[in-house]
């Protein structure tokens, strides 16, 4: 059996620059494995170690996601092998496009019964790709998964929902999006990174995949940069806490927010 981990190689918008007209420049923001995806790697490895399954990492995106740095970063986190689709026709692809490509890759890998994904990506932060992937595959999709383990004939899954913790048994193929704190992911060591370079990587061409085409499209009418919010930025030295507190409370009272 195979467990797929869908992960993203992405930059943090905290490091991006927004031009005054609202277009975003990511050139100074370096990509890494998206912040919460290592949780999915770790969970997948633990499950696979108990069932003997193999763990395959899958990522899709533009050409820039396939570098040796990016490969090693993923393969050193407990994967057995990697499948990449890196094509500039996917620049700016929306969640449904990404999920459509991911679905064809999962089908092609074959004997997959579980896809694990992160809670949300660091750049897009929608928490949508994995659930759309479930839709593309026609599989059960569950988010907010805080624990997965092998159980009789399937997987025992726990979910963290507003009302509490739900436990479930999953007996068929499923796509699970994890919570950000489901497990503490391992930090790869030197031997993990050296080992990563020896693991197989398959690069699939977009042309070789039968990806359904988009039916609904977006035309961007305008972009803008949200007003930075004209904050007053009155900074008080707190080395004398009592004086600083008095000054602040005075200012807040004067501003009638207290």
């Amino acid at each position: 059996m195979t467990i797929v981990v869908a992960y993203k190689w992405a930059p943090n918008p905290q490091d991006a620059a927004v031009r005054s007209e609202g277009t975003v420049d990511f050139t100074r923001a370096k990509s890494t494995i998206s912040e919460y995806d290592p949780v999915a790697f770790e969970l997948a490895r633990r499950v696979a170690d108990s069932t003997g399954a193999q763990v395959v990492g899958v990522t899709v995106g533009d050409a820039s996601i396939d570098t040796s740095l990016a490969r090693k970063a993923a393969l050193s986190r407990g994967l057995d092998r990697l499948v990449i689709v890196a094509d500039d026709r996917l620049v700016g692809a929306d969640s449904t496009r990404l999920a459509a490509v991911l679905a064809t890759v999962v089908r092609r890998i074959g004997d997959v019964d579980l896809v694990l994904a992160g809670e949300s990506s660091v750049d897009v932060t929608e928490g949508q790709v994995a659930m759309t992937l479930a839709g593309q595959l026609g599989w059960l999709g569950l988010n907010a998964v805080s624990s997965v383990s092998a159980s009789d004939g399937g997987y025992a899954v726990e979910r963290d929902v507003p009302s509490g913790t739900v436990s479930m048994v999953v007996t068929g193929p499923a796509v699970l999006a994890t919570t950000a704190d489901a497990v503490l992911p391992r930090v790869p060591g030197m031997k993990d990174i050296l080992g990563a370079a020896k693991k197989p990587v398959e690069v699939l061409s977009l042309d070789a995949l039968d990806v359904p085409s988009a039916q609904v499209t977006l035309t961007t009418l305008s972009t803008s940069r949200p007003a930075a919010g004209n904050r007053q930025r009155v900074i008080i030295d707190g080395s004398d806490p009592t004086a600083a507190a008095a000054e602040l409370v005075g200012a807040l009272r004067a501003a009638k927010v207290l």
Partner: peptide, 17 residues
């Protein structure tokens, strides 16, 4: 999110958040 994912996939339409 799960419902919208299934809809977006069937319609091949972007999900807008």
């Amino acid at each position: 999110r799960v419902m919208l994912g299934a809809i977006a996939a069937l319609l091949q339409a972007p999900g807008l958040s």
